[in-house]
Design a protein around this nucleic acid. Sequence first.
DNA 1: ATTATCCTCAACCAGATGGTTGAGGATAAA
DNA 2: TTTATCCTCAACCATCTGGTTGAGGATAAT
Lengths: 118, 118
Amino acid sequence: MNDSLSPVFAALADPTRRDMVARLTEADATVGELAKPYDVSVQAISKHLKVLEQAGLVTRVAEGHRSPVHLEAEVFELMTKWIERYRQRAEARYRRLDAVLAEMNDETTGRRSRKETA
Amino acid sequence: MNDSLSPVFAALADPTRRDMVARLTEADATVGELAKPYDVSVQAISKHLKVLEQAGLVTRVAEGHRSPVHLEAEVFELMTKWIERYRQRAEARYRRLDAVLAEMNDETTGRRSRKETA
DNA sequence: ATTATCCTCAACCAGATGGTTGAGGATAAA
DNA sequence: TTTATCCTCAACCATCTGGTTGAGGATAAT
């Protein structure tokens, strides 16, 4: 399976990681900067970053001493595509269902369908 | 934190569950029907359904013997909202950054900025 | 040259996750 | 009534996950 989607969903399933992503939309940041607001060790944040990195959500270019973290927002589209595809499919189905129900209702009440009366 | 998002992302981080969701956009289905295509026990699928259910992605109304599973597509919007918010924020930032870089380039090359020449 | 800072790796731990098998309760069919 | 079907619960297992602490390598600052 070419499953590039699972790691992305998994990465964003953690609130700390979602928050980090949110902050990275404002500006790149070093590991230390990213770690500051949270009540966990720098090592824990380093691990979180590895998860985001392997999901393709984030890249790092070692820059001497520090390694600034950069958000790769294109991956968002992968998810949006998936979600939208099935959301629309579901909606289409509901529309069909509504039509069928309306039809049934019209028939049992002896009324003409809207199409016919139009 | 009012974290209703984490369970949704977590639920969709599994390919089997994503596939079940995809299939449920076509039609409601019983647990047995859902389980058929996969090479795992019915109990495993039952567990997957509990995950989807607790994420709010799916509901079940016991109907005598069987309990048909129904997709609740509204939850999709929660995710889409989150993703779109930060995607747009990231894009806005890139636009700002591009503008700054263009400005710097113009200055070092002694050219006027596009705004001035327009 | 020494010291401090930034970061990662390794080992460990508790709890979650995804799978299994076995047992059993309710409903439907014989 | 008996039997079959659909589904869930419980116990178990291996692996993954998110956290910790400790050690250490590179780079930067004194």
